[in-house]
Design a protein around this nucleic acid. Structure first.
Lengths: 237, 237
DNA sequence: GAGTGGTCTAGACCACGAG
DNA sequence: TCGTGGTCTAGACCACTCT
């Protein structure tokens, strides 16, 4: 059974997305929502907190909850951004080409970032992403084989996350990301359509499961003109 | 009086930062914390939720709350990032030089992004940021004069946010940000120390107050080698 | 079975905004 | 003054982990 506060969140989020409740309008008051959903106020407030965190509403003491503009939030923002989500923002044709899928023993750099024993089996996956026929994103993934034994090229060409969560029941919980700009390497120039671009936007991320296991390390290189990152952030404190 | 859940959060966050409780260890259980702080469990849980959101802990059902590694989180990340915070991550000497501070009537592009009436008085502020003597960041700020009438070059050289929040009592609430890479303009090349760099990382942000007023629009251009963005993100849903 | 976190309830009092 | 959201309480029951 779905949790109550999640159900309330889903319903209100949908009403905002479909503009059944428009930007600038007030949501029904917490007391009203409490009655409407036959629940307690704290439960309603959990749903509203989620809406607030995700940029749907702004709460105003003494007034109510105002619906915010939705327009410029094409990205899931501070959620875990997989390539599938990134490309949606570009609204273009997308192709994924698996250029390499191999199993290695952890050592050196990879062992260090995945924080595992030397010799631990690791999947190394290289993928080239094409937008409108141009190879503009190059991903290198490293993941613990133990946790995802059955990866295939077909799965890799789609979304690894979907496979992990839906097939294997693994729960991805959080990630640390770093975005920097670096010189394109010889390998990058050989495999990507860089034209005259000499630099790449590099997104490095470490992905963790619910039990805090570091499960995946990814290096994603983007041709600068095809890179865009959007964020919605609330002031902490 | 400080809120209880905030006080609990502050105390636990400090204990984690100072490694009084080390990474990998469990926090005291919610029931224990409830007793220790002489409060209710829901209040303790609010504090723990904040810790979780900010990457301090990971909650494990049936086990407890594990403290996470703090090492690689030099940036406040998904908080509102002002320049002051950004530069801290570089651990270098920082200088801010106000190159221009003027008052204009809103029109055209600026009027549009600030969503105000034509002719509304607007501060336009240009700042050059130097790291180790090199001009590597160029900020252009536009803000509603009405809300921050007393801006001076001295204030602008420090942190505008501090002035707004501490002097004027304005509460910054949330922001939308976009990060892209663009060609350096003639103006950028003239005013920044770009060397052979032809491209810049551009961070555009819209800053909103608690009452959802759009208050500030900023364009921040970074020389690519001095740009770094770090993020901690939880999987939504 | 005992202890943990996850969800939910039905109240209470407070601070703030608007009329 | 009244309705709004913000905080807090003292319970309850559930799902999960560990032994």
């Amino acid at each position: 059974m779905e949790k109550k506060f999640q159900a309330i969140y889903d319903l209100l989020a949908k009403e905002i997305q479909t503009e059944k409740i428009k930007a600038g309008q007030l949501l029904p008051s917490e007391n009203e929502l409490t009655e409407r959903f036959a629940t307690s106020r704290e439960t309603v407030r959990k749903a509203l907190q989620l809406l607030s965190q995700n940029g749907y509403i702004q709460k105003l003491q003494g007034k109510g909850s105002v619906v915010l503009e939705q327009d410029k939030l094409p990205l899931p923002v501070s959620g875990l951004t997989s390539f599938k989500e990134l490309s949606r923002s570009m609204s273009q044709k997308v192709e994924t080409c698996v250029t390499s899928l191999s199993c290695k023993k952890a050592r050196g750099f990879i062992q260090q970032v995945l924080q595992c024993e030397e010799g631990t089996p690791i999947w190394e996956l290289h993928r080239l992403r094409k937008l409108d026929g141009e190879s503009v994103i190059y991903d290198k993934d490293f993941l613990l084989k133990e946790l995802a034994p059955g990866i295939t090229e077909e799965i890799a060409a789609d979304s690894i996350y979907d496979y992990l969560e839906q097939e294997l029941g693994l729960s991805i919980s959080y990630a640390k990301k770093e975005v920097v700009v670096e010189e394109a390497q010889a390998e990058d120039k050989a495999i990507m359509d860089l034209g005259s671009y000499q630099q790449l936007v590099v997104v490095r991320s470490a992905v963790y499961l619910e039990d805090t296991t570091l499960f995946q390390y990814t290096e994603s290189k983007h041709r600068p003109d095809k890179f865009r990152f959007v964020d919605f952030a609330r002031r902490t404190k």
